[in-house]
């Protein structure tokens, strides 16, 4: 082994990944923006200038600081109840990231396990699982989430559960497809011949080789989760007022759109920038992780 050491060694997987990820400038920008939002979300209570639910009754619908009538006390203005927009947006970042992380964790964990099962199970069980997923996919995702929330009762928690259920079939399909193609490879056969049990085969032998598309899917469904949660909040079926969730903020601001542009504009900008940053990152992840597309 020692004689081999002067040949250039293969770069570590992480470094190779970073090499390709870095080539995509958009992805790097996305990563930076995402990192900034993560910090804002983590430190929200410390950096928000005001309490997000505090109503300053003397400063209702005050415009942002650069406009006539604005002041540095409320840099992005106040909403119809006199609450500070900036503080609400900062604290709102928390809810969005919370939604994203919880939904992706539930949907991916459930989806991966069911997908692995389908990939290794006998034909009949596989068919049943995939038909079930087809059934869920037949409903437009937002509609199914809306109806599920109607059953469970409108709240942020129930909205997250509903979105996770709706997103989970995508993970099942992806995992099963990768498992199907991996399972026929020689290394799996040799592991089986060497006496690896089913659990070991599933989780230790095969799963790590199926992860690339799943990671990309996780990034993309993170942004879908944020968008759908905001849409549910906007329809009054997600987080309930006075929670400073971005979609709920938009719903509360709707009747003021022609009088006070800032109460409508800023929450939407926050959603757009977050989702855009995550999608940029997702594109970069796909380029870096998917060897087929790597150099195209």
């Amino acid at each position: 082994m020692t004689e081999m050491s002067n040949t250039p060694s293969r770069p570590s997987a992480l470094r190779e990944f970073w090499y390709y990820f870095r080539e995509n400038r958009g992805a790097v920008i996305g990563l930076w923006v995402f990192g900034a939002f993560l910090i804002v979300a983590a430190l929200a209570p410390y950096i928000a200038p005001h309490d997000p639910t505090m109503q300053y009754r003397g400063n209702i619908l005050q415009p942002p600081v650069w406009q006539e009538g604005g002041s540095w006390q409320f840099p992005l203005g106040t909403d119809p109840l006199g609450r500070d927009m900036l503080s609400r947006l900062i604290v709102g970042a928390r809810f969005s990231f919370f939604v994203g992380i919880v939904v992706v964790s539930i949907a991916s964990a459930g989806g991966i396990i069911i997908g692995l099962l389908a990939g290794f199970a006998p034909q009949w069980l596989d068919t049943i699982i995939m038909r079930l997923m087809d059934i869920i996919l037949a409903f437009p995702s937002l509609l199914l989430a809306l109806v599920l929330v109607a059953v469970l009762g409108p709240s942020l928690t129930n909205a997250m559960i509903a979105i996770a259920i709706v997103l989970q079939p995508h993970y099942v399909r992806l995992t099963r497809a990768s498992v199907m193609s991996e399972r026929q490879k020689d290394y799996v056969t040799s592991a089986r011949v060497a006496g690896a049990g089913l659990m070991r085969l599933m989780f230790i032998t095969v799963l790590p080789n199926c992860l690339a598309p799943i990671i990309v899917q996780a990034a993309l469904s993170f942004s879908t989760a944020i968008l759908d949660a905001a849409a549910l909040g906007f329809l009054g079926m997600g987080a309930q007022p006075p929670t400073p969730e971005w979609g709920t903020m938009l719903a509360e601001a709707r009747e003021f759109i022609l009088r006070a542009w800032w109460v409508v504009t800023f929450p939407g900008v926050a959603i757009l920038i977050t989702v855009l940053a995550i999608n940029l990152m997702g594109d970069g992840l796909r380029d870096a992780l998917d060897p087929k597309l790597k150099r195209s």
């Binding site: 968008l227 905001a230 849409a231 906007f234 929450p267 959603i271 989702v275």
Partner: peptide, 8 residues
């Protein structure tokens, strides 16, 4: 593609 269409 990233647009929250209700805000749009």
């Amino acid at each position: 593609y990233s647009m929250p269409i209700f805000w749009w």
